[in-house]
């Protein structure tokens, strides 16, 4: 028996062991892991080796990036502490560089920084592989810019070390639409930015949805699109008394914001285009429904608008 005859089976066994290790770890998490839903903002490309997939842009990853930047947290492995709401959608509570001993958490990797010095945080589940053509169907339900959009919520099992494994998906029962009221070609001046932003929320689930808001829209916050951190605005909502709004199935609630008003300008700047300056640095904004200002909780339903730019345009 020559050397090749001895070593070839060794290679085969090693290959099988490697595959078995990967498969058993993921199967174990799928069978025994705690299941949560992670809200996403997807697009649809193709992998040459693995076919169609949907790129998943997790909302909580954006929030975690903002927290990491704010706390100057730098670590290759980070742990995102989560709390689920009534619909089992996970919201971010905090980010740590060490694995928590208790509670729900997911592990992320942040070994590099992007051009804005934000950590390139990834959970390792940013691709959702689907049968060829199915990605387009998901995209169609998700909706296009300025039309009604339905966020995809990924069903994820979490291992004891925070390893996430995707086990399925569903669509959020809350649809949104983000657009500027003015058509860009109908503006008085061709180069003038649009002023009136419309953000609509529709309840398409069976149970009523409760929102809290007032005329100044203190139930909503303007946030940076990348980090979802609030933009400091010339307004004070700390004493606002928010009105309870019940959205029954099929009902819609529309928020109209005049971005030229002082209260929607960046703090300390009276220039009507001051947001545009921030915009250039932060790649756009989103409007987020935050509920009661005094008592924001991780349990609340967080509703996010599409990304928009102060100079015009909605993604």
């Amino acid at each position: 028996m020559n050397k090749a005859q001895i070593w070839l089976p060794v290679v085969l066994v090693a290959q099988l062991l490697i595959l078995a290790t990967i498969v058993s770890k993921h199967e174990n998490i799928m069978a025994n892991g705690e299941v949560v839903y992670l809200r996403t903002m997807p697009v649809d490309p193709r992998d040459i080796f693995r076919g169609d997939y949907v790129v998943l842009d997790y909302e909580l990853v954006h929030r975690a990036k903002g927290l990491m930047q704010e706390n100057n947290l730098r670590a290759d492995n980070v742990y995102l502490n989560l709390r689920t709401n009534q619909r089992d959608v996970a919201n971010l509570v905090s980010v740590d560089s060490t694995a928590p001993t208790l509670g729900l958490f997911v592990r992320g990797f942040a070994s590099a920084f992007d051009h804005s010095y934000l950590p390139k945080l990834q959970l390792g589940i940013e691709k959702y592989f689907v049968e060829q053509g199915a990605g387009k169907e998901l995209e169609a339900i998700r909706g296009e810019a300025q039309s009604w959009q339905t966020p995809l919520e990924m069903r994820v099992a979490l291992g004891s070390d925070g390893t996430p494994v995707i086990t399925g998906h569903r669509f959020s029962p809350i649809r949104t639409r983000t657009r500027f009221a003015e058509q860009e070609d109908a503006l008085a001046q061709p180069d003038a930015p649009p002023q009136h932003l419309e953000f609509s929320i529709e309840n398409s689930r069976l149970a009523p949805l409760t929102l809290f808001d007032d005329q100044a829209h203190c139930g909503f916050a303007l946030v940076h699109a990348e980090t979802l951190r609030p933009v400091a605005l010339n307004r004070n909502c700390s004493k606002a008394v928010l009105k309870r709004i019940e959205l029954f199935p099929g009902d819609r609630y529309q928020v109209e914001i005049d971005l030229s008003q002082l209260q929607w300008q960046a703090k300390g700047q009276s220039d009507p285009l001051s947001l545009a300056e921030v915009d250039r640095a932060w790649n756009g904004f989103r409007l987020v429904y935050q509920g009661q200002v005094d008592t924001p909780t991780a349990d609340a339903e967080q509703i996010l608008s599409a990304r928009f730019f102060r100079r015009g345009g909605v993604d």
Binding site: L19, R50, I125, Y128, V165, I166
Partner: peptide, 27 residues
């Protein structure tokens, strides 16, 4: 690639080439 597709794995794709390449090197 099939295993990574089944479990929607997207963590550091060069690792897949590492496993494949080292196996090819052994052969």
């Amino acid at each position: 690639w099939l295993v990574s597709q089944i479990y929607h794995m997207d963590e550091h794709y060069p690792n897949f080439f590492m496993l494949w390449g080292l196996s090819a090197l052994a052969l």
